[in-house]
């Protein structure tokens, strides 16, 4: 048996869940259909391809690769069509590019950055990437993070670098079908702890775990 070359940081925790496994971007992904009325849904999106870069010239370099750069620190914008991926500006001069299921921009950027120009520093991303969605999302956040999410203006496309249950996370707040839809990235080595803790809280709300791509 050959162990897949890409495994999600929480791959082993998902073994006990029912569902079908398929390979996406070389990573085994569990697919489950969530009940539509679940108050809280947790989704593992680690299989998506992503690329990180930082430095004083990172913005210019990304623009030279055809991307539109978020104009303000701590904001995001969508990748050029037809992709539904995102480019996030983390703080002043660091960027995270994450593809959707149908795009492969990140690996191309990684290739192009193998010999980076001056003041462009590639950042290897091996995050646990998850999504929190459903009507109970804000309640979960209120129990785990000391930021006022309800006061955010989604139209500003904010990015938040903060701490959640003691773990450094990057958050991209959003909405889907009228309910909150939050994307979260954290260091994969905290992945098991973060996932298990959020699952325990979600279970109290009657939440579900899925790996369906929304």
């Amino acid at each position: 048996m050959n162990t897949p070359l890409r495994l999600s940081p929480i791959h082993d925790l998902l073994q006990s869940l029912p569902g079908n496994w398929q390979a996406i971007n070389g990573m085994p992904v569990l697919t489950v259909s969530p009940p539509t009325t679940s108050p809280l849904i947790l989704t593992d999106r680690s299989c998506l391809t992503r690329f990180g870069v930082k430095g004083a010239n990172a913005a210019d370099w990304l623009a030279s690769q055809g991307l539109t750069i978020p104009d303000r620190p701590n904001s995001w914008c969508p990748l050029p069509n037809p992709s539904a991926g995102i480019i996030a500006r983390l703080g002043l001069s660091e960027f995270l590019i994450e593809d959707s299921l149908s795009s492969r921009l990140a690996p191309q950027l990684a290739m192009a950055c193998q010999t980076p120009p001056a003041k462009v520093y590639p950042v290897l991303r091996q995050d646990l990437a998850i999504a929190l969605s459903g009507p109970a999302t804000h309640e979960l956040l209120q129990q785990t993070c000391n930021l006022n999410f309800r006061a955010l203006i989604l139209a500003d496309r904010p990015i938040l670098l903060t701490s959640l249950i003691g773990v450094v996370v990057t958050l991209l707040p959003g909405e889907h079908n009228g309910h909150p839809f939050y994307r979260l990235w954290c260091d994969g080595t905290f992945g098991n702890y973060l996932w298990q803790t959020l699952v325990a809280i979600a279970t109290e709300f009657g939440g579900t775990i899925t790996n369906v791509e929304l």
């Binding site: 620190p73 701590n74 703080g91 002043l92 000391n146 930021l147 938040l160 670098l161 903060t162 701490s163």
Partner: peptide, 17 residues
């Protein structure tokens, strides 16, 4: 918890610093 104003990230609780 005291709030600290980060020039890039805004007002945040001191536990983030």
């Amino acid at each position: 918890m005291k709030l600290i104003p980060c020039p890039i990230n805004g007002l945040r609780p001191v536990g983030e610093f």
